[in-house]
């Protein structure tokens, strides 16, 4: 054999594997630990009074400290949403499902949430939803402590009540 094989290898499979330690700041750690107690914390801007969730140390709008932590309701309003029809590796949720921004009662910005117990075609802006928590004893203080949000059946919120809280 004075030649390599005529048939080439077509491709190689490879991966970049980057392990690292994530360190939550004070606010994110307080927020996560509170979830274990079924509490959702936000922070209030010392100048404008706006409430951010997850809590931010300073307002991105006024740049002022947001140094007061406040407890928020686990109910809120779907401010915007999309219907997911494409599977994502590592997420075992039946398709289609609704991914939504939810403005919790008392918060001035929305959090990202999954909405379940709701047909995709029934999802709408203004829909009232509530958190479904993991059972007592299973919550560990991370973002999976809220399993998902589900419709409450209350009347829809008027547009002006959430349109500036996306």
């Amino acid at each position: 054999m004075s030649q390599p094989p005529d048939e080439p290898v077509k491709y190689i499979e490879s991966k970049i594997h980057l392990p690292y330690d994530y360190v939550a700041g004070d606010y994110r750690a307080l927020y996560m630990r509170a979830l274990a107690d079924k509490k959702i914390l936000g922070s209030r801007c010392s100048v404008t009074g706006k409430v951010f969730v997850p809590p931010l140390m300073s307002s991105p709008e006024s740049f002022a400290p947001a140094d007061e932590l406040v407890e928020l309701s686990d109910r809120g309003i779907v401010t915007t949403f999309c219907v997911v029809n494409i599977p994502v590796i590592g997420r075992e949720v039946e398709l289609p499902y609704v991914a939504a921004s939810v403005a919790l009662d008392g918060a001035d910005i929305s959090i990202f949430a999954m909405v379940q117990e709701c047909k995709a075609e029934d999802a709408r802006m203004g829909m009232r939803v509530e958190a479904v928590w993991k059972p007592d004893g299973e919550r560990t203080g991370d973002h999976t402590d809220i399993s998902y949000f589900r419709p409450t059946g209350e009347p829809d919120a008027p547009r002006e009540s959430y349109i500036n809280r996306l």
Binding site: L18, Y20, D21, A24
Partner: peptide, 17 residues
Amino acid sequence: APRTEPMTAEMVSEFVY
């Protein structure tokens, strides 16, 4: 601003190609 004990987690970013 409120403080708390540090919270850490071991994470992995992986890009398969």
